[in-house]
């Protein structure tokens, strides 16, 4: 199968200003997500996970190596690659109602299709459970609902690749689980390629087909783990599955740089 989105020996260096030394965000990372795959990337905070997604979205260029989308190098934001930000409140358009936020990606379409597209956007809002909130403003909604608006807007853009930048880390624990389940439902329905960046190991295992583990700075790829848990996944049974717990143990130990209980000598 052809790769949908790949990082090919990607290195990102942030140039230091003045006396600051150059900062190597990550070094020589090769990783690819197959079409319709749900790939998670976990790593300690500050390891440059978000930068990886920003490069995939064409928002920033790698210093060396390249990001490849269906065989073509990514230079500017490619069509169909949609980014879901952690800071949903800053990503929504405060002056637009919920429905007009969702309409944003399709507004370039001819006027004749407006009605049809609007109906479609209403349907996306229904899919994320925001039926009846079309005419509210984002600041009138709770955090979890705001992220749902952002998700509906991403759906409206017809994503081939959805980049998830810790999208559920700013909401409360219960809402986070609801949003995770919602994301899985949408992913199973729409079959886009999803790349999730998170520091939450359980979230990565719960959602993903494979989990890529990043090491500490300068960040390199430590290992890629097949999750292999059955789908559809469930917030209770999946998380209680012995295989889930084993994976969690393994990945957490890896992130903490331990070998199953023994403190690494380094």
């Amino acid at each position: 199968m052809s790769q949908r989105l790949g990082f090919d020996r990607v290195t990102k260096v942030f140039e230091g200003s003045g006396n600051d030394a150059d900062f190597v965000a990550f070094d020589d990372i090769t990783l690819e997500a197959a079409p319709s795959e749900f790939l998670a990337v976990v790593g300690p905070s500050g390891c440059g996970k978000s930068t990886l997604l920003r490069m995939a979205a064409g928002l920033t260029d790698p210093t060396r190596g390249k990001v490849v989308l269906d065989g073509k190098p990514v230079r500017e934001p490619p069509p169909g690659v949609i980014y879901l930000f952690q800071q949903y409140a800053k990503s929504l358009f405060a002056w637009r109602t919920v429905i007009d936020n969702v309409m944003f990606p399709v507004e370039g379409a001819p006027r004749a299709r407006r009605g049809e597209l609007r109906a479609q956007c209403r349907d996306y809002l229904r899919q994320v459970g925001l039926d009846g909130f079309e005419d509210k403003y984002p600041w009138q909604l709770s955090g979890g609902m705001q992220q749902r608006v952002a998700i509906a807007r991403a759906l409206a853009a017809d994503p081939q690749v959805l980049l998830l930048d810790e999208p559920f880390s700013a909401v409360d624990a219960l809402t986070r689980m609801e949003l995770q389940t919602l994301m899985l439902q949408l992913w199973e329905r729409r079959k886009f390629t999803a790349i999730l960046v998170t520091h939450d190991v359980e979230e990565a295992i719960f959602l993903a087909d494979r989990v890529a583990v990043l090491g500490a700075r300068p960040t390199s790829l430590k290992e890629v783990i097949d999750v292999g848990l059955p789908r559809p996944r469930d917030q209770l049974t999946t998380r209680e599955d012995p295989r889930f717990l084993k994976l969690r143990h393994h990945i957490t130990a890896s992130l903490l740089a331990r070998n199953d209980g023994h403190v690494a000598s380094a």
């Binding site: 920003r54 979205a57 934001p77 069509p79 690659v81 949609i82 358009f93 853009a157």
Partner: peptide, 13 residues
């Protein structure tokens, strides 16, 4: 303006 807002718009091309 928060950069997130601009980048959001940019990813929608």
């Amino acid at each position: 303006i928060d950069d997130t807002l601009i980048q959001t718009a940019r990813t929608f091309r």
